[in-house]
Computed example of a mutant assay.
Amino acid sequence: MADSVAINFTNPSTFILLGIPGLEMDHVWIAIPFCTMYIIAILGNFTILFIVKREPSLHKPMYYFLCMLATTDLVLCTSILPKTLAIFWFNSREIDFSSCLTQMFFIHCSLAIESGIFTAMALDCYVAICDPLRHSTILTNDMVAKIGLAVLLRGAVLALPCPLLAAQWPYCRTNVIPEPYCTHIAVVKLACADIRVSSYYGLFVLFCVNGLDVIFIVVSYTQILRAIFRLPTKDARLKTFGTCSSHLCAILAFYIPGLFSSLMHRFGQNVALHFHVLISSLDLLMPPMLNPIIYGVRIKQIRGRLFRLFTQKLN
């Protein structure tokens, strides 16, 4: 199929998504863990939203940010996995050019929003630990809403040029994308034009989103750790650190694979293609699955509410 579409054309009406090149014979089996991750992500994130909505004691800034994170994770995995599973199970590889650009927007927008939410959660941890007496006056419901809106707008504004840039390039080599979804760099690599503008913009977004957010998070946690180490007893230090440990685990699960995947995408020319695609896919799909597990296990209030919910059902 790849050879039949690798012909000269200008504005393609469709792209062909190969899935995981080189592992086509194993797509049916690879789809099983992908489908499992999707089910866990859907159930886990909807559970977080349901518990926070039902439990008045959880109507606090940290849990509002957690609901924003859960909603973003649902959008991210739903924009990727249904089409990916259709490729793996039904060999449905074609995707409309406009649909490809739409998917690209939602992927990059969701990633930028998720990074912004982690930054907002770092701010919440910083205020709660370093200035607890003013926490309720600084992070009011109105302020949380404004932060959420700012994060949403930043993600949308930074992600929108990606499909707009991809739409302007002529595609006269091939319309075959060696991945199961449309990302900015994967699509523009197919263009028969100088795509340095797209490449530079992708690096700019990477720095403006992940780079600046990571700097802010590192500064916040530096101050948090300094405040924790000033506490008088070991038990107090451990208890205080435990309040932000789930957030720290989720941050590491999001940024470290994402940075590795982004660098490999641009500079890992000697990496096997199927390995690269697998790592990139896991980088996108693992956080939506892991986040509700991390927060559900680590946060006592959510764990307790979930336990009560199950016991009520059993009784």
Score class of each variant (00 low, 15 high):
residue 185 I to S: 06
residue 107 I to K: 02
residue 306 L to I: 05
residue 19 G to Y: 09
residue 230 R to S: 15
residue 35 C to W: 14
residue 262 S to R: 10
residue 189 K to C: 06
residue 78 T to C: 11
residue 246 S to H: 10
residue 231 L to Q: 04
residue 51 I to G: 00
residue 90 F to D: 12
residue 298 R to P: 00
residue 116 G to P: 03
residue 54 R to V: 01
residue 197 V to I: 15
residue 41 A to C: 05
residue 228 I to S: 08
residue 244 C to P: 01
residue 71 T to P: 00
residue 173 R to C: 06
residue 68 M to L: 09
residue 157 V to S: 01
residue 70 A to V: 01
residue 148 G to I: 06
residue 183 T to I: 11
residue 112 A to W: 00
residue 72 T to I: 07
residue 281 S to E: 07
residue 102 T to P: 04
residue 195 I to R: 05
residue 198 S to H: 01
residue 294 I to G: 00
residue 250 A to E: 00
residue 119 T to N: 07
residue 115 S to P: 00
residue 117 I to A: 01
residue 196 R to P: 03
residue 118 F to T: 02
residue 79 S to H: 09
residue 280 S to W: 08
residue 176 V to P: 08
residue 230 R to L: 14
residue 119 T to A: 12
residue 208 C to K: 09
residue 205 V to C: 06
residue 219 V to N: 13
residue 179 E to C: 11
residue 270 N to I: 10
residue 300 K to D: 06
residue 110 S to M: 03
residue 184 H to D: 07
residue 301 Q to T: 06
residue 15 F to H: 07
residue 241 F to V: 03
residue 8 N to W: 13
residue 89 W to L: 15
residue 221 Y to F: 15
residue 305 R to Y: 04
residue 170 P to A: 11
residue 191 A to L: 08
residue 184 H to R: 03
residue 291 N to P: 05
residue 6 A to F: 13
residue 231 L to M: 07
residue 271 V to Q: 08
residue 114 E to P: 01
residue 168 Q to E: 13
residue 288 P to D: 05
residue 153 L to G: 02
residue 148 G to F: 07
residue 71 T to I: 15
residue 98 S to Y: 14
residue 281 S to C: 13
residue 219 V to H: 13
residue 169 W to H: 14
residue 41 A to Y: 01
residue 217 I to W: 01
residue 158 L to G: 00
residue 287 P to D: 02
residue 4 S to D: 15
residue 42 I to G: 04
residue 146 K to V: 07
residue 146 K to D: 04
residue 300 K to Q: 11
residue 272 A to N: 14
residue 56 P to D: 05
residue 291 N to K: 14
residue 8 N to S: 12
residue 252 L to F: 10
residue 209 V to D: 04
residue 133 L to T: 08
residue 147 I to N: 00
residue 292 P to N: 04
residue 302 I to T: 02
residue 157 V to I: 15
residue 109 C to A: 14
residue 120 A to K: 03
residue 244 C to W: 03
residue 100 C to P: 02
residue 230 R to P: 06
residue 286 M to I: 15
residue 143 M to C: 10
residue 267 F to S: 03
residue 276 H to P: 05
residue 110 S to Y: 01
residue 179 E to K: 13
residue 187 V to Y: 02
residue 227 A to T: 10
residue 67 C to K: 10
residue 13 S to N: 13
residue 71 T to M: 12
